[in-house]
Design a protein around this nucleic acid. Structure first.
Length: 261
DNA sequence: AGTACCACCTGACGGC
DNA sequence: TGCCGTCAGGTGGTAC
């Protein structure tokens, strides 16, 4: 679920449901979801009485502003999701962190695998710097993208997944961006023109995913993702898609039109 | 700089 | 029906 487009949909959901309501209570149901530099006690004590004023996303990270210098940070991991619900609704099965508002509604962070993270920070900027998270994939300029990727000798897909270079792409959309660009994920040492094409492929991939509200089933048939399964055929030339581990991650690509560089 | 593992967790799925 | 191995869209650490 959670790469940049999915996280952006969650951000919009938070914006539409959870802002400007006074928090009555905050409950950590599983402390493993709390990021290591934040205290469970502190989190539960400081939230009551405050409101979320705005929701901000950078890459796959979310920040909810509570005060000028206090933000709730969220990361969805692999299985995280947020549910705004009324008190009568059933709590999500794997709710790990729950904020209850004065109006009786609550915001529940559900995450079965507990790869997600909840915490506090004084500043998203310093938070991102400390974690060495690179520019957001939708915000970065082509000039900065080229400066970051130029001269890299490693496997291109690994670079796309490296959040310290560019933040937001995960395994699925990295495959899609390379598919759109016609570059094999195992390629290395892309030249300036290829990197420029890749930048366009990333932008096309992410903007199209946002247009479908991150619903993979609504992507154009010409995209890889609707066909990204064992036995799937390339929508461009009918070739059977290959899949193998590249940089430790399962990767799908068309052996015909995705050129090895 | 880059890679190759390992670890953190749980649930779904296919094979037997 | 049940058990078991395998796999999963993320990230961080370590050793080489």
């Amino acid at each position: 679920m959670p790469e940049l487009p999915e996280v952006e949909m969650v951000r919009r959901y938070l914006e539409a449901t959870s802002l400007h309501q006074t928090i009555r209570d905050a409950a950590v149901l599983d402390k493993r979801i709390i990021q290591s530099d934040s205290s469970v006690q502190h989190l539960q004590q400081i939230l009551p009485g405050l409101q979320f004023h705005s929701a901000y996303r950078h890459g796959k990270r979310l920040f909810l502003r509570l005060l000028e210098d206090l933000y709730l940070t969220l990361h969805l991991g692999l299985t995280g999701d947020l549910f705004y619900q009324n008190a009568q609704e059933a709590m999500p099965r794997h709710a790990r962190f729950v904020v209850t508002f004065d109006n009786g509604h609550r915001l529940a962070f559900d995450d079965s695998r507990i790869f997600g993270e909840v915490g506090l920070t004084e500043s998203p900027q310093s938070f991102l710097e400390e974690r060495k998270i690179g520019p957001d994939a939708l915000q970065i300029s082509i000039k900065d993208f080229l400066a970051i990727m130029r001269g890299r000798k490693g496997i291109i897909k690994s670079a796309l997944l490296n959040q310290s270079l560019v933040a937001g792409l995960g395994n699925l959309y990295a495959d899609e961006a390379l598919f759109q660009t016609g570059i094999c994920p195992k390629s290395r040492g892309l030249d300036e023109a290829q990197l420029s094409d890749l930048f366009s492929g990333i932008q096309l991939t992410l903007s199209t995913a946002l247009k479908t509200h991150a619903d993979l089933s609504k992507l154009p048939d010409s995209f890889l993702l609707p066909h990204r399964h064992s036995g799937g055929k390339c929508p461009r030339d009918g070739e059977e898609l290959k899949h193998e581990k590249i940089g430790g991650r399962t990767s799908y690509y068309c052996p015909k039109h995705q050129k090895m560089v």
